[in-house]
Amino acid sequence: MRTLRYSINVTLDGCVHHEAGVAPDEELMQFWTEKMERADALIYGRVTYEMMESAWRRPDSGRWPDWMREWETPFAEAIDAKKKYVVSGTLREVDWNAELIRGDLGAAVQRLREQPGDDLAVGGVTLPLALADLDLIDEYEFVVHPVLAGHGPTLLAGLRERIRLELVERREFRSGAVAMRFRPEVSA
């Protein structure tokens, strides 16, 4: 069965908003690129899909925009090429190598997990909360940044039940950010 991993940047006070001051530097972008390259497919909700598409989809010209730094291009190329599944009840269609998921979220994601292939990656705020409540996330990966945002959406706010986690990997970055990967503890 494929592993479903939830990965996200988060501030020390738990904010997960993409504009909370946690933009990756070159070292972190390389980390995220490696994670993206290892994933077989991405699962996003509508908001995250549209945000990622607007930032990382290769323009029709075939050339990356001038604002993109050279060290961001490998990430852009990796995400642009990935298969994407979009959970949405409002979108009528998607492109950018994407397919819509409708109906029973748990059953649809479980079918994806049971297909052959490498890991699945989920991102965003709302969709991962629903998947955590359904006990479908196999690994949680948080890159905690030394920033206090003071406002914005927080990590897994509204989770129905506490999930105890076991640390399986930890990595520090020059920026002071720390990546931690966890698995849910198995009940005895």
Score class of each variant (00 low, 15 high):
Ala39Cys: 02
Pro65Leu: 03
Leu105Asp: 10
Glu114Pro: 02
Gly124Lys: 06
Val143Leu: 12
Gly106His: 02
Asp119Ser: 14
Gly14Arg: 07
Ala98Tyr: 08
Asp138Leu: 02
Asp118Asn: 14
Ala23Gly: 12
Leu91Cys: 11
Gln110Gly: 15
Glu77Thr: 00
Leu131Trp: 09
Thr90Asp: 03
Ala130Asp: 11
Ala130Ser: 12
Thr33Ala: 08
His17Gln: 15
Ile101His: 03
Glu93Ser: 13
Ala108Pro: 05
Gly106Glu: 09
Trp67Asp: 15
Met68Lys: 05
His17Ser: 15
Asp66Val: 05
Glu99Ser: 08
Val87Asn: 01
Asp138Asn: 09
Trp96Glu: 08
Lys84Leu: 01
Ala108Gln: 09
Trp32Val: 14
Asp80Gly: 10
Gly103Arg: 04
Gly62Glu: 01
Thr73Trp: 07
Asp60Ala: 13
Ala81Pro: 02
Glu114Lys: 05
Arg46Tyr: 07
Tyr85Ala: 05
Trp96Lys: 04
Asp135Leu: 10
Ile79Ser: 10
Glu72Ala: 09
Gln110Leu: 15
Ile101Trp: 04
Tyr140Gln: 03
Ala76Leu: 04
Ala39His: 00
Gly62Phe: 00
Leu28Arg: 13
Tyr140Ile: 06
Ala107Tyr: 03
Glu34Gly: 12
Ser61Glu: 08
Lys82Asp: 03
Gly123Pro: 09
Val22Leu: 12
Asp66Ile: 01
Ser88Thr: 07
Ile43Phe: 07
